[in-house]
Design a protein around this nucleic acid. Structure first.
Lengths: 117, 117
DNA sequence: TTGCATAGTTACCTTTTTTATACTAAGGAG
DNA sequence: CTCCTTAGTATAAAAAAGGTAACTATGCAA
């Protein structure tokens, strides 16, 4: 157990709050099955290490299933578990809110004053 | 924007992913208006500084309104903005998922409070 | 023999986030 | 005059998260 949660929303946030987890879950929801390399291409900027770690945590939290094919070169497929699939409504809500507010977020902290020295 | 988002869900996660932000938003959604000290009591374990910082970030992201009464001792009231209120559906979804899976994520969990959505 | 393929691992480092502790302002009560 | 109140600041420290670059395994193809 990682934490004494004060409220159920924290449980959800806890498993979903990693820099890339939201997008990972979203893509797995769309595509059903994705290989490691496919995910990597879908997340421009992730490092191998970070992607591995995010996937391992999602797996540990029971959201993602990891299927390893005993081949060389390796082949690993990721998909949502039943638990992960039940996040669909939440992810959709987050997507909707995000779309509505993408123009709003973070516009009041623009460091624009470079006029005088 | 603070980041080059590759998907709208990231926007939402970005403004909601702070250690205490989920519960803060939840309580503000329930109570409409809360003073700083009331919030502090509702979040056992939070430090003054962290609570201040979380609230400042929520304010900066346009989710929370801060109303200062020019008194001594000071009185400051926090409430959700319209933007913040629009997170209601998302928060409710997260709460529901969290309740369903509190037994899954970490087995030796203390029971979470059963406030209703 | 060399090189390529995939899905990692490892060591090291920087940045971000959170915590702990002490301190402040200004009026009213005693 | 001193203490109490609230909503913070200031400073330092610790912890967590994420990034970079190099390295691994093993079968196959040239």
């Amino acid at each position: 157990m990682r934490k004494n949660y004060i409220h159920p929303v924290e449980i959800t946030l806890d498993v979903v709050c990693g820099k890339w987890k939201g997008v990972i879950l979203w893509h797995l929801q769309q595509e059903n099955i994705l290989r490691f390399g496919e995910l990597k291409k879908l997340l421009p900027g992730v490092s191998q290490k970070t992607l591995t770690l995010q996937l391992r945590e999602l797996e540990e939290d029971g959201l993602v299933k990891r299927k390893v094919y005993p081949q060389v070169p390796p082949k690993v497929e990721y998909s949502l578990t039943h638990y992960g699939q039940e996040l669909e409504a939440t992810l959709n809500q987050m997507c909707e809110w995000g779309k509505r507010h993408k123009d709003k977020v973070g516009q009041n902290n623009q460091p624009v004053s470079q006029e005088n020295s």
